[in-house]
Amino acid sequence: MSRKYKFRSQDDLYFISTATINWIDVFTRSLYKDIVVESLRFCQREKDLDIYAWCLMTNHLHMIIGTRGRKMEHTLRDMKQFTAKRILEALAEHPEESRHDWMLWMMERAGRRMPGNDIYQFWQHDNHPIAVFTPTVLLQKLHYIHQNPVVAGFVERPEDWLYSSAKNYYSSDLPLLDVLLIE
């Protein structure tokens, strides 16, 4: 099946968005958010993923990414499989989670509709990759990513959101594009 949005070249930067199934607000607890952050760090170290900007919201993740070799779609697939498994395990280990039964029911229901799925569907399949070709588009996507928690009313300043790269950009004295290009 062809999708409109694809990774067309591994040499380009991409803005990606991925969400939990049915936009379930799973990432309201640090336990679940930390699993995603740990997995992203692993992908940077071991799977050639370059993350230039990111923001994890309550039910979705935005990033600007590139690669040093491995296909981005394969890395994202692996990251999503790993985090889904670990978060589902965490839910099973913490039945006192107030939304435990409801979240598992929703994920199981979604999983039954997906061919080849084991039991649960945690993430939506698409990553909605958009190639970032110009500095203007790059800055627009960077602003969009970091303003997400502000627009949602969670924080007043982007750099105050803990699960985001905004603090790396807004606390620097360097121009924004210079920060982006420095490792």
Rank of each mutant, 00 (worst) to 15 (best):
K85P: 05
M106Q: 10
W102C: 05
M106Y: 13
Q81R: 13
M103W: 14
E97S: 03
R99D: 14
A90S: 13
E89M: 14
M103I: 08
E97D: 13
A84D: 04
S98C: 02
L88Y: 13
R99L: 09
S98A: 09
E89P: 00
A92D: 15
M107I: 05
R109L: 04
L104E: 04
L88T: 15
Q81C: 15
A84Y: 03
H100L: 11
M106S: 13
A90F: 08
I87G: 12
L88D: 11
M106T: 06
D101E: 15
K85I: 06
M107V: 01
W102S: 07
T83S: 12
M103T: 04
E108C: 03
A90K: 03
P95Y: 02
A84N: 00
L104V: 05
M106G: 06
T83K: 09
R109S: 08
A90H: 04
M107E: 03
L91Q: 00
W102H: 13
L88I: 15
A110Q: 04
A92N: 14
A84S: 13
L88H: 13
F82C: 10
L104I: 10
A90E: 14
A90Q: 03
W102I: 12
L104D: 08
M106L: 13
A90N: 02
R99A: 11
W102T: 12
P95N: 02
A92L: 12
E96F: 10
D101V: 08
R99T: 14
E93A: 14
E97P: 02
F82Y: 10
F82P: 02
P95F: 00
E97K: 01
T83M: 08
R109M: 04
H100S: 07
I87R: 09
W105A: 08
P95M: 01
H100I: 12
T83P: 03
F82R: 15
Q81F: 06
E93L: 09
E97C: 07
L104W: 05
E108H: 07
L91N: 00
E108P: 06
L104G: 10
M106K: 14
E96H: 10
K85Y: 14
M106A: 10
E93T: 06
Q81N: 09
S98P: 03
A110D: 07
T83R: 04
I87D: 09
H94W: 11
E97F: 10
E96C: 04
